[in-house]
Amino acid sequence: MGHSEMLLAVAGLDDEQVRKLTAMLARGEWSAFSKEDQVAFRFTHKLTGKPASITDADVKELIAAYGRHRAMDIIWYVSWCNYMTRVGDGLQLPLESTNVFGPAPKKEKP
């Protein structure tokens, strides 16, 4: 969770925007988000928590909201999230105290 908040900051949100966004998500105040966002949020929650319960209707809804290719992107990405968290949880990695996802270092000169 700490890393996702760091990455939201790298993506352009300031501290207050990150705090407001995550507070709304955590309280279940999803009515502040678009219908399409809510489809993606619900899909993410379900694929993460109960992957075998994903139905044809869930996937059709995702495709209707985002198109076939973007729906595939979302499936790939949510699955990716579940790789990352398993390493974090399995090894119980200590969260870094500063945002470690700043701009990538410039390429070294040969």
């Binding site: 993460t48 790939w76 990405y77």
Partner: peptide, 24 residues
């Protein structure tokens, strides 16, 4: 390849981490 909006994807990442109770 996907070139997908990073605020959007990292919002999904937050939901996945919250669902898994992964605080890292």
């Amino acid at each position: 390849e996907a070139k997908i909006d990073q605020v959007f994807t990292n919002t999904l990442f937050w939901i996945a981490t919250r669902t898994n109770r992964c605080f890292y």
